[in-house]
Amino acid sequence: MELIQSEVRVGIADYKIAHAPSKLITVGLGSCIGTIIYDEHTQIGGLSHIMLPDSRPFAKKQALNTAKFADLALPEMVDKLKQDSPRARFKAKIVGGANMFGFKTTSKTGNIGQRNIAAVEEMLQKLGIPLIASHVGGNSGRTMIVDLKTFETMVRIVHHDAVYI
C-alpha cells in the first residue's frame, strides 16, 4: 500500500475503509450519522454515513443499499475491517444525528436524528465496540474529518470553531 496522505471522501449512504496516513471525510451530516471505527495498532479505519436506523421496514424492497442503514452498514463494515485486520481492537466515535430546522417530531417516524443515534449506539454495543467520543444531536449540520494517524476527529459546524473529539 502506498503511504500517500490522501483524503478519502465518504458520500451519503456509503462507507469506506482506509489506512493511515489518509484522512476519512464525510460532509453535510444532518440527521444522518457518521461512525468511525478504528484500530490504533494497524491504523485502519472505516467511516460510515448512514441515513436511517433500521432496514427492516424496507426489507421487502429489492436491492437494498446496506450502507444506508445503521443495522446493516455497521456489521458489514466491521466484517470488512476484520478481513483486513483480524486481530484489531476497534474503538468508535460518532458524529451527527441533528434535528435540523427543529422539525416537529409529531410525524409517525419521530425525530430521525435521535433514532439514528440510538440505533448506532445499540449496534456498536452489539458488536462489542466501545464508543469513546461523540458529537451528536442539536440542530446543526456537521462535517467530520478523521486523521487515521491519530484517530483525531475534527467536527465542523457552520459559523463555529472546529471541535476535536
Binding site: 444532518g30 417516524t109 449540520g141
Partner: peptide, 17 residues
C-alpha cells in the same frame, strides 16, 4: 439556518418520510 447544503437537503427529505 446557515448550514451545509448536504445536511439541509437530506434532512428535509427525511423529515418528510
Amino acid at each position: 439556518q446557515d448550514d451545509y447544503f448536504g445536511a439541509v437537503i437530506s434532512s428535509v427529505y427525511m423529515a418528510l418520510d
